[in-house]
């Protein structure tokens, strides 16, 4: 089936290819529901819809910035032969990837926080408290690692970062809406909280799997 998809796939950097990648990252391979990334903040912050909206927006924002930035770092500094522009074609710094990515993410989060604080007080009031949380959100680091593993181009990694963020936000917002309703439900005592959240997430994940047959041409 994969071979069939590859045979029909359009040029990955064309508009159609990028749209397909975006749809795949949002629905089919949702970074939270299929790869389980960013579960910790998802479980902790999905109790109310408005906070979930705030965190979702912050994740979209940070992912859209960090994935392309890490792409530049990977392709111009870390990759084998990437330092040829400095006259060092034999250097392979791939093993430093992890430390670089996490440093970039922590720094970007800090910079974004300061920029928002300076230019938009309303946005800062909405996103401010969530930004530090995001530095250790595995969805952010995971997206950068997938970018490296799948060898995306710059355009692809920007689209991938943005749509992974959308997918994550979609999942946490729908979960928060369900949990707000659940508050009035009669859930068995020891299933309350974490247990029922997992089971509901499983059902949402099942619903998202119905997208898996769809292809964008």
């Amino acid at each position: 089936m994969i071979a069939l998809m590859l045979a029909q796939a359009p040029d990955p950097n064309s508009l159609a290819g990028l749209t397909g990648l975006a749809m795949k990252a949002i629905f089919v391979e949702n970074i939270l529901l299929a790869f389980f990334l960013g579960m910790c903040s998802y479980l902790a912050v999905s109790k109310r819809v408005d906070t979930a909206l705030g965190l979702g927006a912050a994740v979209i924002f940070v992912l859209t910035i960090t994935v392309p930035v890490n792409w530049v770092i990977y392709n111009f500094i870390l990759r084998e032969g990437a330092l040829s522009w400095l006259g060092m074609p034999d250097t392979d710094l791939t093993y430093l990837g992890l430390i670089f990515y996490i440093a970039v993410i922590a720094a970007m989060v800090q910079i974004v926080e300061m920029a928002i604080d300076k230019y938009s007080q309303t946005l800062y009031a909405a996103l401010g408290i969530f930004l530090p949380l995001i530095a250790v959100n595995c969805a952010i680091l995971g997206a950068s690692l997938f970018m490296q593993e799948r060898d995306y181009s710059l355009a692809q990694s920007t689209v991938f970062g943005f749509s992974s963020g959308i997918g994550w936000a979609l999942a946490i917002i729908s979960m928060a809406a369900i949990r707000q309703k659940l508050r009035t439900a009669n859930v068995p005592a020891s299933l309350r909280g974490l247990g029922i959240t997992f089971i509901v997430t499983g059902l949402i994940a099942m619903a998202f799997m119905t997208f898996s047959g769809i292809q964008i041409k």
Binding site: F36, L182, P188, S190, L191, F198, G202, L203, M209
Partner: peptide, 27 residues
């Protein structure tokens, strides 16, 4: 083998563990 199965299983496991250890939390 799919993602939803993992979520459901962990949910049930947490239920059993909390049922035995007697821990509860608010919804």
């Amino acid at each position: 083998l799919l993602a939803p199965g993992a979520f459901l299983l962990l949910g049930i496991l947490v239920w059993v563990q909390r049922g035995i250890s007697g821990y509860t939390e608010e919804n």
